[in-house]
Nucleic acid binder design. Sequence first.
DNA 1: TACGTTCTGGACGGAACAGTCAAGAACCTC
DNA 2: GAGGTTCTTGACTGTTCCGTCCAGAACGTA
Lengths: 196, 196
Amino acid sequence: MARPRSFDQDAVLGAVRDQFWATGYAGTSVDDIRAATGLGKGSLYGAFGDKHNLFLRVFDDYCTALTEAVRQALDGPDAGAYGRLRGHVLAVADATASDVCLRGCLLAKATAELAAQDTAVAARGRQTFEALEELIASCVAAAQRAGDIKADSDPARLAGLLLAVLRGIEALGKGGSSPSSLRAIAETALAVLPRP
Amino acid sequence: MARPRSFDQDAVLGAVRDQFWATGYAGTSVDDIRAATGLGKGSLYGAFGDKHNLFLRVFDDYCTALTEAVRQALDGPDAGAYGRLRGHVLAVADATASDVCLRGCLLAKATAELAAQDTAVAARGRQTFEALEELIASCVAAAQRAGDIKADSDPARLAGLLLAVLRGIEALGKGGSSPSSLRAIAETALAVLPRP
DNA sequence: TACGTTCTGGACGGAACAGTCAAGAACCTC
DNA sequence: GAGGTTCTTGACTGTTCCGTCCAGAACGTA
């Protein structure tokens, strides 16, 4: 019927995401995006709308992918639940510590920069935090059923604590990683979980 | 000798800080600052240098004031150390939860937005995180001497964990506060601290 | 191959941006 | 009150910003 798009939409959205990730929303100009993607302005505006719309798109995709990655890391049978939880917490700490460019997590960056002014970003951020907390709570409950975490503690409260620790590790990582080392924080958080 | 400044420097710096706090570094124009302070551009540039320098100034002041406030909250005799620690953790959670405008903590906002690109901000942020961690560690050690926290745990590791929880509460607060409520997180963090 | 449709690239307009500067105002000292 | 110095105001420059628009290119269909 007509001329098809000549660019790979996923690749373009990935480049846009990386640009916003590196320099923030207000710190990224449409011309930066044009340079990062190689697209002309007409293509960008035609395919994705304006800058704000484009940001919401990549932010939404990021939140979806993050939630899905955590689900894959934590979901599974009761038997290995504690090991998966432990592995995930340590993996987040190690990934943050080795993030030399200090870009951190886009969810954290975006909510920090925009949540106060942009209700769409605030809502999506909150929804994502809640989804992460639920995934952690399910894994805690599974670890309790397997006898690896004390059964009488409230899994929702432990999940809230663990999520806060993870987001805190992320925040501290932006300061250049080290207060007593992020891995030590993760290990300590796991060590204080009530065992049967 | 000459004409003195007609503005109150502290008041101006406070207004500048609030403006950056509300809209971020890249999201704040010099004209926004001019409007917030009522000063002309010549006065602003003459007294504080360019936008970046002005930001570093208010960020530095903020870090100093934050550290000092935490010191006042946590410093004191061994006897009440645990109570001070507990009070501080709960106070941070309550303050974050009741922060309706979602501005959060400027230290978190600034490091999230700029640490990757601005080494001065990254260095000051890291220094502040380390100072906060030391203050918490001292308070934990005092609580251990008073017999309120188990003596054989490493105060530095517990301090790292508590700092991460506090920064995590702050980060979650930006998403619109509630995953299982910030206060519950603070209470759970205190509950899992090893008691004698 | 010819046509209609959609995509592409870049030029363009008007607004906002950071930072400079000069003319005049305000003050202290003498 | 006169002189010298600093502060204030706001106009100004040149750049960068976002978003629009159009001429031409690329494709599917007939």
